[in-house]
């Protein structure tokens, strides 16, 4: 009798798990799935894609979205030279000081500065964007479940609203945004940027590249993490094998 209860309970749990899983995720829309270079145990960032993504970020997104946790000097991870980094940094201005007279002054960016935030605070950001707040993108890929797939889906998910869908003024329909109403209009356009490496700048390509760049921006240490992880786990497997042999040896004299 009790065994029946136990089996039933287990079966019920298992059978609703799949259903409940989708609920727990908070959204019932399946994201598009890209086979990213950085996925998996041995994944690394596609440097060329990330560099193109930086260009997309600076030319398309940086007007509204900050990247305040990423210092220019960290771009060396993506293969930029010191000169290139200095040039990128110098394109933004930063307030520094006080000087000898006690005045604050503006100076061009240096490698130790972080990417700028376009608005001084959230209220200013909202005022410039019809009340909507363009969030800082430094951690966006980690702040969403399956962040890289989510970001790619979002950027390529601007489709026509289905028949009868109520879309308030100033909002746009997106198949992947929660509740499908997003204040940001589709930011990417065909050939919106001109890639220096000649890659065709389709919306799909731009979406992929900026996603790779932002994934790096959120997790610059991913590659070291995975490579150290591999060595640690291999070492532990050998150690576990040795300890098992030792344990067997020590215990063998008991029987």
């Amino acid at each position: 009798m009790l065994r029946v209860i136990k089996s039933l309970g287990l079966a019920a749990l298992v059978s609703v798990a799949a259903m409940g899983g989708a609920q727990a995720a908070g959204g019932s829309v399946d994201l598009k799935s890209v086979s990213w270079n950085h996925s998996g145990m041995f994944g690394t960032y596609d440097r060329a894609s990330a560099q193109r993504g930086l260009q997309v970020y600076r030319e398309v997104c940086a007007g509204c979205h900050g990247l305040g946790l990423v210092a220019f000097r960290t771009l060396s991870d993506l293969g930029f030279s010191e000169e290139e980094i200095k040039a990128i940094a110098a394109e933004s201005d930063y307030i520094d000081g006080p000087d000898g007279e006690g005045e604050m002054f503006e100076r061009p960016g240096k490698p130790f500065d972080a990417f700028p935030t376009p608005f001084p605070n959230e209220n200013a950001a909202r005022a410039s964007n019809n009340g909507a707040y363009p969030p800082d993108l430094s951690l966006m890929v980690k702040a969403r479940a399956s962040g890289d797939n989510y970001l790619y889906s979002l950027l390529t998910g601007y489709v026509d609203a289905p028949e009868g869908f109520e879309l308030p003024d100033g909002m746009n329909y997106n198949a992947y945004f929660p509740d499908h109403k997003i204040a940001m209009p589709s930011p990417l356009i065909e050939d919106g940027v001109e890639y220096s490496d000649g890659t065709a700048a389709t919306i799909d390509q731009q979406a992929k590249d900026v996603t790779v760049f932002l994934t790096w921006a959120a997790e610059p240490k991913m590659e070291q993490r995975k490579s150290i992880g591999l060595r640690v786990i291999l070492f532990l497997l050998i150690l576990a094998g040795l300890f098992y042999a030792v344990k067997k040896k020590v215990w063998s004299d008991l029987h």
Binding site: F235, L236, I238, L239, L242, V246, K249
Partner: peptide, 16 residues
């Protein structure tokens, strides 16, 4: 032979 196993395990633990 038994000692070698212990030495190996102990040595690898120290490295780890």
């Amino acid at each position: 032979r038994r000692d070698f196993l212990y030495v190996a395990a102990g040595g690898l633990s120290a490295v780890g």
